[in-house]
Nucleic acid binder design. Structure first.
Lengths: 107, 107
DNA sequence: TTTAGATACTTGACAATGCAAGGTAGTTGG
DNA sequence: CCAACTACCTTGCATTGTCAAGTATCTAAA
């Protein structure tokens, strides 16, 4: 898959996933992988960044299957960010799609 | 606009535009700008890269409005690249869209 | 002819982000 | 104890877009 396409979009995806329900990192990796090819070394730094930016809060929950799970919970600021990013994304995609159609129509 | 979204997609856009008809750099900047916010300092290096990669060939044409224009023409290799990238792009977008719907459905 | 302005393109330092590869820890079963 | 699985995290690297500055060429006005 094209790595470049993912740039920036993963932020939206992760924000969206967590906004639906609290999740821990590993869970997110598995969930997101169903739709887009991702590496866990991509997700963890991203989660850290989004937490630093106050879009997420975290809490630990013990697990019987390994080390404690760090859950991420979306904040109010995070919800605003989702809305903004989602809007940007749709606008961007529709612009690109229009361009593609424009360039492909006579074939 | 989100800078990151553009990563990789601009390559597709430029390839598509040139595959429709031969174009010179400045013309491309203006054309692409109609759909996506771009900087001319982004387009020129990209054109150079795509030419190095044998996706484009170039030729010069005199102009009455300034210096000679360097036209870019798509190669066979370039056409294959377009097809590949376009396919990747649609697959990627539909994956993301599915994810977005998945996360937004109960609201 | 020299100056100004538009056009056309190049270059280099910079920032963001994804990836591969590695490391740490806890739990369970052999 | 050791292997396998879960879960988490860090580091260095490559790619690609941005911005600022600079080069060069043409036209037209002074």
């Amino acid at each position: 898959m094209n790595t470049q396409f993912k740039k920036g979009v993963l932020e939206l995806i992760v924000l969206l996933a967590v906004s639906k329900k609290d999740m821990y990192g590993y869970e997110l990796v598995l969930e997101v992988s169903k739709f887009v090819d991702v590496n866990d070394g991509t997700i963890y730094p991203l989660l850290k960044r989004l937490t630093n930016d106050k879009y997420f809060e975290t809490y630990l929950v013990d697990s019987t299957e390994g080390p404690a799970r760090k859950y991420y919970k979306i904040t109010v600021l995070g919800k605003e960010r989702v809305k903004e990013l989602k809007q940007n994304w749709t606008t961007f995609v529709s612009g690109v799609d229009k361009f593609i159609k424009e360039c492909t129509k006579d074939e």
